[in-house]
């Protein structure tokens, strides 16, 4: 009857929940050291911007097939990863669930936490065979959530997802930055992250969905704040990252300046939201100004993407010039 609880794993909700989870797991295992914004950018997560046409809260996590995006994140960091996921209603679920419980426990035995869709993404940092439970950190409360082995993967969404990590190879910093720019371009140019679903837009197109929803006035009030917070947070992360990265690629200074300007426009977070009924909603009076900020932001990002592109084309990109035999979409 074994019990393992990993200490030193600190999951805190500051960025996208996957990024927060990834950061906790990797820093806890010594596989990454550095500020969260750097991990966010190098893993490609920072650049991701996805919006549902009605600004539903799921916008922030509906950025594509998680298996693909999160494997890409690990690949770009040089870290081995295994992801598993599916729909709980499919007949094979129970088998995969039991399998996942096993390999997560073995990951914990090796001292590595695992990422788990609660929802949102959290970190499994311990297990106890006697109680048949996992300890999961959700980044909000200091106390871990408890998930029974038998309930692993079952939640109010139709999906389950888990991911663990392994060894690491060194990838040159310059290569990692280059790959980050390329992931940013990939996301910018992908209008719909989960086709054929067109109710969610990503990258450049996400702007038009966001603006349109605000203009129409028909949107989920909690979701709108969440999308806005996530947007502000991620664009700030990109700014810090580019400031650093321009030391390696001086051409990036111009892109960093775009994001600095963008961050400047979004200052004073209180300006955009009001507290109501124990939660926050977008302040009605600020919406026109918010729309203005978004329109300006889109132009700034477009310029930054142009800078990324001009740097990217200077170096060969074997990965993107070869048609793969995986990814882009996972099993339906």
């Amino acid at each position: 009857m074994a019990e393992v609880i990993l200490r030193g794993l600190e999951m805190k909700r500051e960025s996208k929940s996957f990024t927060d989870s990834l950061y906790a797991v990797l820093t806890g295992a010594g596989l990454f050291s550095g500020p969260k914004y750097r991990l966010s950018a190098l893993s490609g997560m920072a650049f991701i911007f996805s919006v549902h046409e009605r600004l539903l809260p799921l916008s922030v996590t509906a950025y594509g097939e998680w298996g693909t995006v999160h494997k890409r994140a690990a690949d770009s960091l040089g870290i081995f990863t295994v992801t598993d996921a599916g729909r709980t209603r499919h007949p094979t679920f129970k088998k995969y669930q039991q399998d996942a419980v096993k390999w997560i426990k073995s990951s914990l035995d090796r001292g590595l936490g695992a990422v788990y869709w609660l929802p949102e993404f959290g970190v499994i940092h311990g297990y106890d065979d006697a109680d048949r439970i996992f300890y999961v950190q959700d980044g909000y409360s200091a106390e871990s959530k408890i998930v029974l082995y038998d309930n692993f993967g079952i939640n109010f969404t139709p999906f389950w997802y888990a991911q663990m990590f392994g060894g690491k190879v060194d990838i040159g910093e310059k290569d990692m930055v280059l790959e980050a720019l390329r992931m940013a371009l990939d996301d910018w140019e992908t209008p719909h992250p989960v086709p054929p679903n067109r109710s969610i837009a990503s990258g450049r197109k996400a702007y038009s969905y966001f603006i349109h929803a605000l203009e129409q006035g028909d949107f989920d009030s909690f979701g709108a704040v969440y999308v806005w917070d996530a947007f502000r947070g991620s664009r700030t992360e990109i700014m810090y990252f580019l400031q650093e990265a321009s030391l390696m690629f001086p051409g990036l200074q111009e892109a960093a300046a775009c994001y600095e300007q963008l961050a400047g426009m979004m200052e004073q977070p209180e300006r955009w939201t009001v507290s109501a009924n124990g939660g926050r909603t977008l302040s009605q009076e600020s919406i026109p100004a918010l729309i203005g900020v978004l329109k300006e932001a889109e132009k700034l990002e477009e310029r930054a993407m142009g800078v990324f592109r001009s740097i990217s084309v200077q170096y060969p990109d074997l990965k993107r010039s070869t048609v793969p035999r995986w990814g882009l979409h996972t099993a339906r």
Binding site: Y96, W326, R332
Partner: peptide
């Protein structure tokens, strides 16, 4: 990865798989 997984899944066979570029550092 997706289609061969589905091939097994449609038959009620559980499977795991992995794939990648051999030139990738990992």
């Amino acid at each position: 990865v997706a289609e061969n997984f589905l091939a097994a899944d449609f038959m009620g066979v559980t499977a795991s798989s992995s794939a990648g570029f051999a030139f990738h550092p990992t």
